[in-house]
Amino acid sequence: MTNLASQRLPSAPSELRRLIRRGCWAGPTAGLARGYVQANLVILPADWAYDFLLFCVRNPKPCPLLEVTELGSPIPAQTAPGADLRTDLPRYRVYQDGQLIDEPTEITGWWRDDLVAFLLGCSFTFEDALAEAGIPLRHWECGCNVPMYRTALACVPAGRLHGPLVVSMRPIPARQVARAIEISARYPLAHGAPVWIGDPAGLGIADLDRPDWGDPVPINEGELPVFWACGVTPQAVALAARPPLMITHAPGHMFVTDWPVSRVERE
């Protein structure tokens, strides 16, 4: 991996979160705290929480549920008991009535007693397994964020929530695609196997060089674009369904849990 920043950051989740809490790291988390589960974050008012829980049940590929916090509590008691979801992610996004209004590095000032936080599995979790199998990860090589795209595929609606599926893309050598599918399928709580391989037009994506979130990466000769369901999907839902308040991670800036990857790996 050529992302030098990751080489000087602590590998223990609690130490990395402490550094993030102090404002010392505000970048993407791909390749950090390797061997530990990373998670997407969604925070909603309690009167929207049931709709979102139902949305996760109906759309488990983009929204594999890891934890739901107690009402009004920012503490992820199951996945990282000593953490604080208000401060321990590198960057957040705040949506009001379907509009992105802020991208802070902490959300203490936004926190309310009626909020519920959801942690969803993330494909960064299985990237170590891909790398150990010799499968290249272009965003690691480039030291950038993974590219993410809004698709033309609709998620299954739930209550007031609706919107398109979002996918992340990794270029994979054609000869290694089957192995990438096999490995990622072992992690259903981290989006599991890809949802599409090859021509992005099949997903309604017009231009891979213009991701909706993250950074474009080159696709080399002999490689295929491989697409996984993505936990940024709730942010597309926020734009479509316009809840009065939704707070999320900034794309690629995940919450690092204390769970080892083996905890979510299927035999």
Rank of each mutant, 00 (worst) to 15 (best):
Gly35Ala: 05
Tyr36Ala: 01
Val37Ala: 10
Ala39Asn: 00
Asn40Thr: 10
Leu41Trp: 10
Val42Met: 13
Val42Lys: 06
Leu44Gly: 02
Leu44Ala: 10
Pro45Glu: 05
Ala46Pro: 05
Asp51Lys: 11
Asp51Cys: 07
Asp51Asn: 12
Phe52Cys: 06
Phe52Leu: 07
Leu53Val: 00
Leu53Lys: 11
Leu54Thr: 13
Phe55Pro: 00
Cys56Val: 14
Val57Phe: 15
Val57Asp: 13
Arg58Phe: 11
Pro60Thr: 04
Lys61Tyr: 08
Lys61Ala: 15
Cys63Gln: 02
Pro64Val: 14
Leu65Ser: 12
Glu67Ile: 03
Gly72Pro: 14
Gly72Ile: 05
Gly72Asn: 11
Gly72Ala: 09
Pro74Asn: 04
Ile75Leu: 13
Ala77Ser: 12
Ala77Asn: 00
Gln78Phe: 15
Gln78Asn: 01
Gln78Asp: 08
Thr79Leu: 10
Ala80Cys: 00
Ala80Thr: 08
Pro81Cys: 00
Pro81Tyr: 11
Pro81Phe: 14
Ala83His: 05
Ala83Leu: 00
Leu85Arg: 06
Thr87Ala: 06
Asp88Arg: 08
Leu89Thr: 03
Arg91Gly: 11
Arg91Glu: 14
Tyr92Ser: 02
Tyr92Trp: 14
Arg93Met: 13
Arg93Gly: 05
Val94Tyr: 09
Tyr95Pro: 01
Tyr95Ile: 01
Gln96Leu: 15
Asp97Val: 03
Asp97Met: 08
Gly98Asp: 03
Gly98Glu: 04
Ile101Cys: 08
Pro104His: 07
Thr105Lys: 04
Ile107His: 08
Gly109Asp: 04
Gly109Phe: 06
Gly109Leu: 00
Trp110Pro: 03
Trp111Ile: 14
Arg112Ser: 04
Asp114Thr: 12
Asp114Gly: 10
Leu115Glu: 05
Val116Glu: 04
Ala117Asp: 01
Ala117Arg: 11
Leu119Gly: 06
Leu120Cys: 05
Leu120Asp: 00
Gly121Ile: 03
Gly121His: 13
Gly121Asn: 07
Ser123Phe: 07
Ser123Glu: 09
Glu127Ile: 14
Asp128Ser: 06
Ala131Arg: 09
Ala131Gly: 09
Glu132Cys: 07
